[in-house]
Design a protein around this nucleic acid. Structure first.
Lengths: 94, 94
DNA sequence: AAGCCTTACGAGGAGCGTAACAATA
DNA sequence: TATTGTTACGCTCCTCGTAAGGCTT
């Protein structure tokens, strides 16, 4: 489970549009296509149904969108807490 | 926040011994040393105090050990749930 | 013709191993 | 000297971008 690819997935899941999602992420659209495919391969699950003119989430994709966002936020929070712990090891209160 | 490096950190934090931790992880000891250093750099925090014959957790390291394990487990759980969602979209009960 | 996703191919960076080095007991 | 952690160097794989291809409207 790679957090980087998970982030790509979340952005794409919100746009449901490779070109725009790639723009948001600041990478090429083809790279996003590749990474999503790799991510699906790693999970062994198809996350999106892509027809030539419509991208939609599969059931697995919907499940991952919910939990994935939480996971990403949790990771961010942990990083912040670690930095805080290093800066000022507050025992309990202010 | 890279989950792979976080996993390395957790194993090292439990062994408090680079050589053994590297053995557990199945990588070279020097590689572990490098990855931990990179990880510390990414977080901007020192995780371990290393003397030549003793490795110990800093305050930040201890904080990360607790939360990091949870994060890793959460990531694992999410992956499992996604696969389950793909296999059998159980609405509520059996 | 225009828009959208995918595949092919090449460049750059990250991760890893081997080897060499420094310090402690 | 044996053990432990760090640094240097080279290799391999992964990620990304550009270019070309195929399908739909």
């Amino acid at each position: 489970m790679d957090l980087k690819k998970l982030g790509y997935f979340v952005v794409l899941a919100r746009h449901l549009h490779f070109t725009r999602a790639a723009g948001t992420l600041g990478i090429a659209q083809s790279s996003l296509s590749q990474q999503i495919k790799v991510f699906e391969g790693e999970l062994g699950v198809r996350l999106f149904d892509r027809d030539h003119h419509s991208v939609s989430l599969t059931a697995a994709g919907k499940a991952l969108l919910d939990d994935g966002v939480c996971l990403l936020e949790a990771a961010d929070r942990v990083a912040g807490q670690v930095r805080a712990a290093a800066a000022g090891p507050v025992t309990s209160a202010t």
